[in-house]
Amino acid sequence: MIMRREILPLSIFGALAVLPLLGSFGSDAFILSIVARVMIFAIAALSLDLILGYGALVSFGHAAFLGIGAYAVGILSAHGIREAAIQIPVALFVSALFALVTGAISLRTKGIYFIMITLAFGQMAYFFGVSLAAYGGDDGMTLPGRSLFFGYDIAASERAFYFLVFAFLVVVYAACRTLVISRFGRVIRGARENAQRMEAIGFSLFSYQLTIYVIAGTLCGLAGFLLANQTQFVSPAYMTWQRSGELIVMVLLGGLGSLNGAILGAAAFLLLEEGLSHLTEYWKLYFGPFLVLVVLFARGGLMGGFKRLTGTGDGR
């Protein structure tokens, strides 16, 4: 049974690992950059799934962390600091700080008010980005190049960057897996099932929920760092509320509260977007109804379908 559960993550990561080795198809820079983009958003979706799926905290401002991570790269690069060993800690620290402050306020509210207050903080971050006139304002800024790792420009080639993102994804996935099966993760899941009962047996949920919120924000900041590096461009557009909505869509599309689902959801979303937009300029005309149909008829997203197919109980 345990082995059977590992089939899906092993095949996902196996496929991602061998892709660049598959002859001319795998070494195509275009393919590599799309899949790297999928993996970056998979990290963001994984982080959102921690709070959305496991914590039942519907954050509608998660894209703010993508922006914070990206701006950490952009602003530091603009001042000549292109060293990832400095950029990454700054990106993570600022994301964590933003999550701590906004989380502490947001978690006072429940349900729809939580959705709206996280949206409000997301919008604040967006407008803050727009107001950064020195760093491109509304138009954003182009980076001088990808970040340096200990002084070496090792992420410059698409293939090297691909493996870098892959390594980050593996680490983040492993960390999230460890987190959700730990005692801490069980408390968070308990709060999702019945918050009142968890309080009654003596857990102070606020501190648990704030912790998971900060962890999720920090991990998404990492995704922002990678995203800025991939596109070599930073703009407030990373932080629009539509982008937060897309992150939610990815998690739901894959299946809530299932880390494998978050990766599959990100892949499905971005590949559909890419595929449809090649076929027709009006790809959203088909993608929108698809989302509605998923909600109406395919509950549990891709993982729900996968579980029904394989008969595995809960795919965590």
Binding site: G111, I112, G245, L256, W283, K284, F287, F290, L291, V292
Partner: peptide
């Protein structure tokens, strides 16, 4: 349905109608 399903479905409708 819960709020999350509603958010997802109506988000899909926004995409569709903006494009339509």
């Amino acid at each position: 349905r819960d709020h999350l399903d509603q958010v997802l479905a109506t988000f899909g409708i926004i995409l569709t109608l903006n494009q339509a």
